[in-house]
């Protein structure tokens, strides 16, 4: 644990690529970055020795349909400052959070690919070997495509798991009977 590694320092390190950041909890900061800049961000954190990658969380965000929800989303996005970088996703999308821990601080790098079809994120496993395992899980549980993953085979699910079925998506309610 390095006492110099604070959120200010992390903000400084990530300044060139960060779109916006907010404090989710007193000890948890979320920084939104573009997936194209993810590797640079991680490299910057590694070079500075700021924390370690503790986990990668995937999330399935169901799309918004009615107008009030869309308005709510718009206002949230404009508050966060996200709106100046991208149009709001109205369809289903994935949110990928990379948790970096330093002492009791948690820094989440937040990557939000636009849609289920275009959900590629780069692989961190060249920089952090253990990330490969988290990414394998992410890939099979959500269907997020991880580019350049060294070993993209199933990690947890059986070999005969049907293609295109991703259990942690919100719309997954169990496998059909015949499987």
């Amino acid at each position: 644990m390095n006492p110099e590694n604070t959120f200010e320092r992390a903000t400084e390190l990530l300044a060139p690529w960060a779109r916006w950041s907010k404090m989710v909890q007193p000890n948890m900061m979320e920084v939104s970055v573009s997936r194209n800049h993810l590797l640079q961000c991680v490299q910057a954190l590694l070079d500075a020795g700021w924390g370690y990658l503790s986990a990668i969380t995937g999330m399935h965000i169901p799309g918004v349909e009615n107008t009030t929800d869309i308005e709510k989303q718009w206002s949230r996005l404009s508050q966060e400052g996200e709106l100046s970088y991208r149009p709001p996703h109205t369809g289903d999308s994935f949110l990928v959070l990379y948790h970096f821990c330093e002492g009791d601080l948690v820094l989440n790098l937040r990557v939000h690919p636009p849609s289920l079809e275009d959900s590629n994120v780069p692989s961190l496993s060249r920089l952090i070997p253990v990330a490969g395992i988290y990414e394998r899980e992410l890939q099979e549980m959500f269907g997020v495509v991880v580019d350049d993953i060294p070993d993209g085979s199933h990690f947890l699910l059986p070999e005969d798991w049907p293609d295109g079925v991703y259990p942690l998506r919100k719309d997954f309610k169990g496998l059909p009977e015949e499987v």
Partner: peptide, 8 residues
């Protein structure tokens, strides 16, 4: 290992 449930 965690996470899938299969409903039959």
């Amino acid at each position: 290992d965690r996470s899938v449930k299969i409903v039959r």
